[in-house]
């Protein structure tokens, strides 16, 4: 508990305290600033979108990795982790090379909101795959066969048996994916162009505050992000309990 406090609680408290330092006025100013608000909205909405996509795609990829047999499976299993392993700025360079002005595949995402989406999707892909995979591996095939022998179709079996079993893992992965999404910096800073009101994300906005010596405003934005992250985790947990119980 002491270790946890030192590592997590004290820094978190420090941020909140710092944001309160400038008084309510600074806090309100920082949060109601139109440019900051635009950055916050872009970051949160994109992260929500990416997380929703990951919940579907990550589950499908995990399913394919566990249940299907195909050549190159071991390699794919390895490749999934690359976004984890890569320093984010390297990921940014990769994305810039692929989707930038000199894109070899003709996709020009530089300086657009698509760039933010792509970058966040790239770095958060492994979360749900890696949380769902072990649960799928442990799931007994017996259970699906039992459902089938009781008259359930493949779809009913998936909806009532498999999905509720996977739900905790999917939502745990979603929480991680979302939290990573709203805090992403390195991988998108090169490709997005950081255009105010258009492609600037919260972490870039905070850096701007810090560079201008306005630590109180930066801390205020940080506090907002903290609250958003907490809300997201609680919401996901509530939905997860619903899904798991529905079965």
């Amino acid at each position: 508990m002491l270790w946890f406090s030192l590592l997590v609680l004290i820094p978190l408290a420090a941020v909140v305290v710092k944001s309160a330092e400038g008084g309510w006025g600074t806090f309100a100013d920082a949060v109601t600033n139109r440019q900051t608000f635009a950055a916050l909205r872009l970051t949160v909405l994109t992260s929500v979108g990416v997380t929703a996509l990951n919940m579907v795609m990550g589950t499908i990829i995990a399913w394919v990795l566990v249940r299907d047999r195909f050549p190159g499976k071991a390699i794919l299993d390895l490749v999934i982790d690359i976004p984890f392993a890569l320093p984010t700025i390297v990921a940014g360079l990769v994305l810039l090379a692929l989707y930038g002005p000199t894109s070899p595949i003709g996709v020009h995402a530089a300086n657009t909101r698509l760039a933010v989406f792509l970058a966040i999707a790239f770095v958060t892909l492994p979360f749900i795959v890696r949380t769902v995979q072990p649960v799928l591996e442990e799931m007994e095939r017996d259970v699906e066969e039992a459902a089938a022998s009781l008259g359930a179709s493949r779809f009913t079996t998936f909806r009532r048996i498999i999905l509720p079993t996977l739900a905790p893992a999917i939502f745990a992965g979603a929480a991680l994916s979302f939290a990573r999404g709203i805090s992403e910096y390195g991988s998108l800073v090169l490709l997005s162009g950081n255009l105010p009101y258009r492609t600037e994300v919260t972490s870039v906005r905070m850096l701007t505050y810090l560079e201008g010596g306005d630590t109180a405003s930066a801390a205020a934005v940080a506090t907002i992000l903290l609250v958003v992250a907490l809300l997201a985790i609680v919401t996901l947990d509530v939905i997860q309990r619903r899904v798991a119980r529905r079965g």
């Binding site: 259970v143 039992a146 089938a148 022998s149 008259g151 048996i161 798991a244 079965g247």
Partner: peptide, 21 residues
């Protein structure tokens, strides 16, 4: 006929319970 249309009851060695129910 697929298993679900045969109307047979099947009991497995390792119970195959629906854990969340």
């Amino acid at each position: 006929l697929p298993a679900r249309k045969r109307n047979v009851g099947f009991v497995f060695q390792h119970y195959a319970v629906f854990k969340h129910m």
